[in-house]
Design a protein around this nucleic acid. Structure first.
Lengths: 150, 150
DNA sequence: TGTATTTAAGACAAAAGAGTCTTAAATATT
DNA sequence: AATATTTAAGACTCTTTTGTCTTAAATACA
């Protein structure tokens, strides 16, 4: 898979938050139920995003998490890098250490192009865009049908 | 990672074979040493490619494996599908079951385009092309420097 | 026939990813 | 102050992937 499961969960939660009024803290419990993701697991993942500065959290009653900046300013790629690291954007597809323009592997060229297209997609897609798109077209964000964009 | 480690090893070995005269059986031991891949692990992987019909094997002294058809007729994508399956080409990037044009996820459109470019790369690249390219430009196929295209 | 060489098959172990659970710390409310 | 709610942190388990090892089967050759 291109992106780890943790990363996908983090992205789904981010889209959930992006669809809400900014500034409002949303509880992880709430999200986990609506998105169909294990609460504890989601907590751990969102802790990473918080540590990375993409989210802010608040403890106690009515606490929760929220995006640390407007959804339009957060790109898909930031979530991916925060959780999966930047291997996807740098690593040689043949997994050879030190593959680069100086000592390329046979797939260096073809893969570079493909990687650029992946990178472009990740860099050009903001949470705001995805959330708006999702809301307008009522697209799916959970496996089970228990999520509403409102 | 886009492609599993097993798949990468399978591909490296396939390129090794593609660089040899066709029809000649090459021992897995030999390949594993020149490519820097564990012998037993490589054996297991190549067994999959053999079972899939992409390679032929021969037991006994001077035995080994060889490509079952000309390297020009084997596309990168065949190796990937044989080892990793076709999830990469079908699966929704948000990992939602049943995501499709009828019930799409927010990333359905953007990801479809990216996936097509990956698919195109995999479908248009033959082992022969990669091996020739590698041989002509003396590109790297192993981590350590113990591989020669000859 | 016997032996060495090679792939086949499958058990086993180690590492990484995914997921669960418990306890601690912070905060709001009563 | 006491209690309920919520994230933080970390131990723990389960699953998948990766990697190792042993034994069996096929083949060539002396």
């Amino acid at each position: 898979m291109l992106i780890s499961k943790s990363c996908v969960y983090g992205l789904r939660a981010s889209l959930f938050l992006a669809s809400k009024k900014n500034g409002e803290y949303i509880s992880i419990r709430d999200m986990s139920e609506k998105l169909g993701i294990s609460f504890h697991f989601l907590t751990k993942i969102l802790q990473q995003l918080t540590a990375y500065g993409l989210m802010e959290s608040y403890k106690g009653p009515n606490g929760g998490v929220r995006l640390s900046k407007p959804a339009g300013d957060i790109k898909f790629i930031e979530i991916v890098v925060a959780i999966d690291g930047d291997d996807l954007l740098n690593e040689c597809v043949l997994n050879l250490p030190g593959c680069g323009s100086d000592t390329p592997c046979p797939l260096h060229e073809s893969w570079s192009k493909t990687r650029e297209s992946i990178k472009a997609m990740l860099e050009n897609t903001s949470l705001e865009y995805l959330a708006k798109e999702g809301k307008n077209k009522n697209l799916r964000l959970s496996e089970v049908g228990n999520f509403d964009w409102e």
